[in-house]
Each structure stands twice: as structure tokens, then as C-alpha cells.
Design a protein around this nucleic acid. Structure first.
Lengths: 245, 245
DNA sequence: GAGTGGTCTAGACCACGGG
DNA sequence: CCGTGGTCTAGACCACTCT
């Protein structure tokens, strides 16, 4: 019946009414980054709207990046995104700190593998050549924002795994192995986070994300890093500043 | 109940089972780009799953960019995305054609406005200075993939509106006014398509999208174009190739 | 153990499109 | 007009976190 919905929007769509309502509370500062929303059943009781409809509205806000969920814990207001510039060489840690946020890195796995035909092609090495594969999770202010898979030519960085990988890889490659990036090929695509990537970020499968693939070369044209990153869509903004000639 | 679901997935989640089922049909070519999926009620009857659950699975595939909907018409398999390189100056029409796809542009509105404080700041002109604002919709193979709002300094391109705007603006600015781009500042952010942007693309509000903001300067540092683009998230991939020094 | 979101059912009516 | 997706209801049980 919906006895008395507060300002149920001109169009009369209940889920958009809820969306507008919450969005307004965020815009006016009534709800701030990190704040928790009322429970779904609480909203249901307060607004007199079926729970499915409540959730429809929350999904809208989630798609907009305004709120996010912690599994079976609740809905929270999203913090502002970090700005990522693929043309700059300083790594994640530097640019997150430069924006006054607190970065953290956690290595999920690191192993020596052999090149399959695809990776052999990417690195210009024979099939079976040794490569390192590293999987890491990265945080901003204690919220997991991305998972990444990095592949590095073991011949260029022998003994890489003996270093702590919870720090900047760029730094290690440069200071220990003298490898610095001269060319970056970056490819970005909106995607859905699924399977193990969604699990690693602790989000529901199907949440929108941003897939960033990066291929870094040194001045000699050698591939020194092949990287796949899966970002929460609400955690990142891409800025590029390009000058021609 | 769910009498006999075909391979209901290890986890037993019906909506993910449907997701996997449709995804498999697409991967194996049983369903190809542009093909229509069975109606929701048809799937409901065939699979013995409630319609709400069916829709949950379809939303997953939509978030992944695998399928899209035409309002009250049905669900269709998404065509492949076009590749967009913000570092290259050829416009939409050129790069879409170069990828063997058919571009089209439609001008929604074009008008002379005066600079508000924000736009005045962007263009380095006084408040009240004349500007052109153009709103366009662009298509790939007859599917609307983006809407854009372009603002141009009227002083740099007098009488711009007397030209047909359904063609390349870059070409007009260069050949008629001698304006060519020397620097591009591009900012991209995953977003949700809402309000008039969703309406212009004919999609349901809340569909994930990509917001691209571009600020183009000429060699003298003058701002010649300020552009906001809202893309369907499944229609575009961003590729950037960057060399340092 | 209580409370939360996650999943699912089985209906209903509406708005819009031209399968 | 008929079929489609869009919206909504009012329940139910489960899995997980910890307010």
C-alpha cells in the first residue's frame, strides 16, 4: 500500500524515491563517507515499501558509486575515489599518499611459473621461460580497492621473490635491477568483478569494476612488467594529461 | 521447488547458474552479437526458476557488458566494444570506421550561451563571454553508445553553428578555424547513467557507464574544447600508449 | 544468538513497443 | 492488441558477521 512515503518523487517510482532520499542525505552531509545506512528492514518499516524495492534503490546508488556494501554487515557511504594517472611512473603508494590517503599492499601469492604461449609472445621469450607471477591486494584507508596480477620476466629480475613485495615494485625494479619504464601501454575497460577477483575484494560477484591492463617497457623495448588490475568502480578516477609533440 | 535446472552450478545459486548458462551460449557462438535472448517468462517456464531470479542473472550479464536491453523489447547480446585512444586526435568517426564499424552522429541541440563562473574559469574568459554548447548523440552500428556535451569558445570559432555538427567537430575546428589540439587533459570515471543522459541513450537509469571529460588546448595553451562524454559501459575500451621523454 | 544482507518464490499490475 | 520488460508486494529461509 505504501501508506505515507516521504516525497515519492514526481514519477512516483518508489525505488527512485528512496535513491533520491539517500542521495540527498549524502549531498547535504547528513550522511558522510564511511557512515552506515539504516538496515534494509528498518528502511522497509520506515517507508512502508517492500524490501525488494528498497534493495532496487540501494543497487542504483551502488551503481553510481555513492554507497557500497560490506557482505552481511550493511551499506556504507563511499569515500571519494583516488586519482590514477597511468602516464606517471610513481606507483600506487606514492600517488595515494600524495592525495592524503593511506595506502597498503598485501601480497596474496608470488610464484615462479613458466611462460605459456600467450605470455611467451608478450615477453618475446621462448615458451617455458621462467617468469614471476605475483598477486596482490591493495587498500586505501583500509578498504580493499583493487586486486592485481603482475607478471615479470625472471631473467630481468633474478631473485625478485626474496624481496618483500608489500612495497613498491617499481622501486625494487629500479633500485635493485636498474629497470625503469620508458613506455607504457595501458588498456582500460569497464567490467564486472566476478569469481576470485570479487572474492578477493570481498564484494558480491557482478559489482561493476574497472579492468586496467598495463604493459611496461624499458628504453630498450624489453617488456619488464605485464599487469592486470581489477578496481572497485567507485574507488578510482583516471586522469591523463597528454601533450602532442 | 526448481524441478530440474540444467547444471545448477556447484554453488547451487540459481541466478549464477543462469548467468553461466547464457554466458556459455555466447562463448560457444550459440548466441552471437545482436541476437535476442528468450523472453524472461520463457526462461522462467523453461528453467522452473522465479522471474525475479531470472532477472538477477540477466543483471549480472548486463553488468559484465555481455548483454544489454532495449526497453520493453528484450535482451540482446552485446556487440564488441570500440577502442578509444584519447591520445590520438582523429575523432570518433575516424577511429570507429578504422575498426570496421559504422559511426553516426546526431545533434540534439546547439546553442549560444554565456559563460557562468565555472566555464569562465575553464576557458580563462570573463563571466558572460559567449560560448557554444552542443549536445550530441553518437552511434556505432545503429546503437547509441554515448551522449556528449561540448562547450567551445565562440570567440575562437565564430559562426560555428552555421556548419553541420553531425560531422567531425575536430575537422571543422581545424580546417575552418585553424585550431588544432596540442594538449589534452582527459579524466575518466566509472559512473551510472541517470536522468536525461540515460534517457538520451534509451537505457534504464542506473546502468553503469563511463564518464569521460576532456579539455583540449591549442599550442598557445588556449582552451578550444571542453567536452563531457557519457558512454555505455559495454561499448568502449580505452587504450593509451605512452612513451616517456 | 541476534541481526544483517543474500537468495528465492509466486504472484500482481503497469507502460510501452511493434519480435 | 498482445507480448515485452518494469515495478512492486509479502512473504520465506539461509549464511554470515558481530552493529
Amino acid at each position: 500500500m505504501a501508506n505515507s512515503i516521504p516525497a515519492p518523487r514526481a514519477e512516483g517510482l518508489h525505488y527512485l524515491g528512496l535513491r533520491d532520499d539517500i542521495a540527498r542525505r549524502i549531498a547535504t552531509g547528513l550522511l558522510g563517507p564511511g557512515d552506515r545506512l539504516p538496515a534494509e528492514r528498518r528502511l522497509q518499516a520506515d517507508l512502508g515499501i517492500a524490501r525488494g524495492t528498497i534493495r532496487e534503490g540501494l543497487f542504483q546508488l551502488e551503481a553510481e558509486g555513492a554507497i557500497y556494501r560490506r557482505d552481511r554487515s550493511g551499506w556504507y557511504v563511499s569515500p571519494p575515489p583516488v586519482v590514477y594517472d597511468p602516464t606517471r611512473w610513481e606507483g600506487f603508494i606514492s600517488y595515494v599518499e600524495a592525495q592524503g590517503r593511506r595506502p597498503a599492499t598485501e601480497t596474496i601469492s608470488a610464484e615462479l611459473i613458466v611462460a605459456d604461449p600467450l605470455l611467451a609472445g608478450v615477453f618475446g621469450r621462448p615458451v617455458g621461460a621462467p617468469l614471476y607471477r605475483i598477486r596482490r591486494r591493495r587498500y586505501v584507508d583500509d578498504r580493499a580497492v583493487l586486486v592485481e596480477r603482475i607478471v615479470i620476466d625472471a631473467a630481468l629480475a633474478p631473485d625478485l621473490l626474496s624481496h618483500s613485495l608489500d612495497q613498491s615494485l617499481t622501486d625494487i625494479l629500479k633500485s635493485v635491477y636498474g629497470l625503469s619504464v620508458a613506455r607504457n601501454q595501458v588498456s582500460m575497460r569497464p567490467c564486472a568483478l566476478t569469481g576470485e577477483d570479487a572474492a578477493a575484494l570481498g564484494v558480491k560477484s557482478g559489482l561493476p569494476g574497472l579492468h586496467v591492463q598495463r604493459l611496461s617497457h624499458d628504453a630498450g623495448g624489453r617488456v619488464i612488467e605485464f599487469d592486470h588490475e581489477y578496481w572497485r568502480h567507485d574507488a578510482v578516477r583516471i586522469d591523463v594529461d597528454i601533450r602532442v609533440r
